[in-house]
Design a protein around this nucleic acid. Structure first.
Lengths: 234, 234
DNA sequence: TCTTAATTATATGTATTACATATTTACTTG
DNA sequence: CAAGTAAATATGTAATACATATAATTAAGA
């Protein structure tokens, strides 16, 4: 394996540092050479020689790839290509206290859109066991207007199960990622109208639709179930 | 500003390196001290003293925060807190040639769910100008079954406008992020049935619903419009 | 011969030091 | 007082040394 040294002339530069270039170059390299998940990439020292920069720079570039989830490094073994768990990556920058309000609101909306829109996947993949589980979850729910904290827990349990049924790992991860944001958004005063725990369509109602209805009916039911959230936004 | 040195005892360790701990500690610090967007954080040398580790380690930790978009660093000035553009962060790890097939499929599904689910936001925020623009886009579309490349461009133009109407920046960024994936997925042989450019509901049909219909009708129309994509998945 | 324990080699992880570079601040000089 | 120049400062890059974990190999023991 071979490669030309990094071009240090400041043609494009002004904003791109040496590490920037090296990072880009390494990613190019990995693609050119058709590296696949599981392959070990060249050692740090090999890269320093190939690109003609110090190990410090190589390490910072590799560190970035690591943070992005593109590689994992192990002592003695070197670094290997990994398929990034992109939502895990995202979760790293999801610090509610740092995200600006607009983004928080955006994410909140995104969640609502997803839950309404994933009806077809749920219907395609749901089985009798899932229905049973959902019924059990519903049966364990307390009567309306109990402990707030308690209420939210059951809310999460139910909706998490739906994500699970979707059998879409990225979607599941996305939800896990969004959960911590909700508390924050709920308490941030970001939404206009205070929360109203009365729901137009209950969890039980949703299960009924899942059992006997259609994706179309479910979308509408879910939309109604989330009515309060939508109202708070508009 | 003050802080105890990092605890180097390998209590939890086994997986967490020194940089891991330092990274966590710095984020804690920023939260404890209520740092807000725009604030400059302590200099690298201050941090080395505060935490009792080398500048190398501090730099690697800061580098991570930089990659996550939590800070930006400028020479002489130091590092300042920034509100992360989370989808820009995400785009960094979105290398289609590295993502595994399952994730690609997941993302494809995620897009479909979003477009069906965002009906309420579109309806809430659409205005007459938007309708006009959409009509113009539709009027510029070629007859069915023309150049494939051409067809896709118009497809993108139309759907991008919908995201725009949603007035949700994160959603827009998300779409921009997903676009490059589609070519890849389309050509990857990942989906079962070949693409069929015939659509059950046309773009013109969608605009009609936007003008005279309801969110509910629009969800169904969009679901039908995307029928081929759903079919290819199931 | 096979299993297990000790040894070694290797690549990443951490530390230290030095110098480069950009940019703000302060100073000098006309 | 303005303009240009020098100093100070914090990040960026480099080089080197040692620490540490672990894969690979070899040696020991059953």
């Amino acid at each position: 394996m071979n490669s030309l040294p990094i071009d240090r002339t400041e043609l494009d530069s002004g904003n791109s540092s040496l590490v920037d270039k090296v990072e880009t170059r390494i990613v190019e390299l990995l693609r050119e050479q058709q590296f696949k998940v599981g392959d070990v990439i060249p050692k740090e020292m090999e890269l320093t020689e190939m690109l003609g920069v110090s190990r410090t720079v190589i390490r910072e570039a590799l560190m970035r790839l690591k943070v992005m989830g593109l590689i994992e490094s192990k002592k003695r073994k070197g670094s290997v290509i990994t398929s990034p768990d992109i939502f895990n990556v995202l979760s790293k920058s999801m610090k509610p206290h740092i995200l600006d309000q607009e983004t928080l609101k955006d994410m909140f909306e995104l969640r609502l859109a997803l839950e309404v829109g994933m009806a077809d996947f749920i219907f395609q993949r749901i089985n009798d066991n899932d229905i049973q589980e959902l019924k059990e979850i519903v049966s364990r729910e307390p009567e309306a207007s109990e402990e707030d904290r308690f209420f939210i827990e059951h809310e999460i349990a139910f909706h998490s199960k739906l994500y699970e049924i979707s059998n879409n790992q990225s979607l599941k991860n996305f939800q896990k990622l969004l959960l911590p944001l909700f508390d924050y958004v709920h308490n941030s005063g970001l939404l206009k109208i205070p929360v109203n725990s009365m729901r137009y369509v209950s969890h039980k109602g949703l299960v009924d639709v899942l059992e006997n209805g259609s994706p179309e009916l479910f979308r509408n039911a879910m939309r109604n179930h989330l009515e309060n959230h939508f109202l708070r936004l508009f």
